[in-house]
Design a protein around this nucleic acid. Sequence first.
DNA 1: TAGGCCATCTGGTCCT
DNA 2: AGGACCAGATGGCCTA
Length: 414
Amino acid sequence: MPHRLAAVRERDNTYRITDNRASLFLSLLSIGKHEDDVDVRAFTRRAPETSGSAMLTRLFNEPSLLPDMEKFGGWVDDSGSECSKTKDEEQERCRLGDEDLDDVKGGSSRAQSEIAGEEDDDEDVDEDDCGDEGDGDRPKKRGPKKRKMTPARLERSKVRRQKANARERTRMHDLNSALDNLRKVVPCYSKTQKLSKIETLRLAKNYIWALSEILRNGKRPDVVSYVQTLCKGLSQPTTNLVAGCLQLNSRNFLTEQCQEGARFHLPTPSFSMHAYPYQCSRLSSTHCQPGSNAHSLRNHSFCSAYEALYTEGTSPEYNSPDYEGHHSPPVCVNGNFALRQQEPLSPEAERGYQYSMHYTSLHGSRSSTAHGLAYAPSGARSGSAHSENLPPFHDVNVHHDRAPFEELNAFFHN
DNA sequence: TAGGCCATCTGGTCCT
DNA sequence: AGGACCAGATGGCCTA
């Protein structure tokens, strides 16, 4: 049985081996009669740097080395079936098997056709397999078909790629916009110190979890565990940022209150942050205390949903127009939060902590009242007091009529 | 200067 | 077939 090689004749009447398998070359070397005709060993010495297929290609194109090509079985494609012998048909190149042949023949059309990936050119002749037509039972060749890259096809390919790029940009911009919205509804929003994408997602997850815990337990958690929950898994800078947000909000609040001649000068409780190398001390506690200072509440946006849930007797102006929409004040984050151990708070003091949350959609919602939860706000608050200042997410309800907490729990602790 | 973050490009895959 | 989605690559910018 003659050994059959895969070869095509190029336009310059040279031959290119399309079967690049090294085993083929090795088998060729093993055929004694070929060794008689071709000094393969000498050829190998002459071109030791070439790969097997490249060597075979040169072999075919060296008449002195290969007097009778028919000994190799004629031109066949690399699947073993006969190729056409006509010059035009032979010029339909067979698909290359690897990069070696490109190296030999300087082939570069592969890259171009990969860039293009065009298939819509009716007028273009497909660079299909040799003898592909009329050979239905032969298995299809592997890999993408090569296409001629006419200028028109290249141009269409460019346009298509540009359109795809534009769509991708738009998609990413939309995604970033959504992330920006998310940044605004999680604690610690700052235009100047944006959370990274990943940190935004982490904080959002923690925030959801913290709110879920609040709903589940029906009572406010202690401050430490609350902040710990918020900061779980966050990077150190983000942890500091969150802590700083909580702290600065309180300070701002306190400052403003003093400037306004606040009526209350209650001791400012502090708490220690055992788990973090920063201190969220001096979180003011009294400003959102039930019924304590409705006037000040009116002017400060950072009383949170959390507080709303736990605050009684706050005024309808809680979400007054002064509330500038869910923004935490800009935070200067330098990571230098002094760690200071503080004595534990009295329950009285801790009760008044405000957490500087700015998400206000929960309070007054059906979700907090219709279920008779102990923390539901009461008193003069009206559910219609804040609609114009709420971010678009204000109509989001907490679906705690089902019990997602187990799933949340599993999710959170993953 | 290294590392983190980000925008963009790109090709592949899946879906409608 | 075309669009959406995804992941890898790349380069720019910023900060410690």
